[in-house]
Computed example of a mutant assay.
Amino acid sequence: MLRAAVCRINNVARTSILDTASRIPAVVVNRNMSKHSTETDAEFDARYEAYFNRADIDGWEARKAMTDLSGMDLVPEPKIIIAALKACRRLNDFALAVRFLETVKDKCGAKEKEIYPYLLQEIRPTLNELGISTPEELGYDKPELALVNVYDQ
């Protein structure tokens, strides 16, 4: 009995919604599902570089921008990476800098052998200036407690 009453109320509500939707002008019902960006690559780079170069950036904002960058289908330009590393230095967050470098390496994907050495070459002076080690220099590229595979011997 209760199920029948709920179904009846649902049907009445659905028909009343459909009746009011037919009276709404088409302009209001139309929804744009995509936003076409007109931002060029240079403007994108300048926006993120300026964001990381802000003097009042805090740890949450730096992490948010790094997370946004890691979610995009791109490898950040060296100037963005340098600005992010300098922001990490201003925040005195060495771990965030190393994690960001790990993320950049991961973003290189299948072309890691080509792209990552180029990026390291471009950001090396900044790494030396700030005293930041790469994940490879810290040994983070190899598993810490991995067992030797007996079948490889």
Rank of each mutant, 00 (worst) to 15 (best):
118 Y>P: 00
115 I>N: 03
120 L>E: 06
79 K>T: 15
79 K>I: 14
94 F>H: 14
75 V>P: 02
83 A>R: 07
103 T>Q: 10
108 C>T: 15
118 Y>I: 11
103 T>M: 11
125 P>R: 05
124 R>C: 04
83 A>C: 08
70 S>T: 02
110 A>K: 01
98 V>L: 09
82 I>S: 12
111 K>Q: 13
78 P>L: 03
74 L>Q: 13
126 T>C: 13
73 D>G: 04
81 I>E: 12
85 L>H: 09
120 L>V: 13
82 I>P: 05
82 I>T: 14
90 R>F: 02
113 K>N: 12
76 P>H: 02
72 M>R: 15
91 L>S: 08
75 V>R: 04
80 I>R: 04
109 G>S: 01
74 L>M: 15
76 P>F: 05
77 E>H: 07
87 A>Q: 11
100 F>L: 09
88 C>E: 07
94 F>M: 14
72 M>S: 11
104 V>L: 04
120 L>Q: 10
84 A>I: 00
101 L>F: 11
94 F>G: 04
73 D>Q: 12
95 A>K: 13
90 R>Q: 07
91 L>P: 06
73 D>W: 07
87 A>K: 02
106 D>K: 03
101 L>W: 06
122 E>V: 04
120 L>R: 10
111 K>Y: 10
107 K>L: 15
118 Y>A: 13
83 A>P: 07
100 F>Q: 06
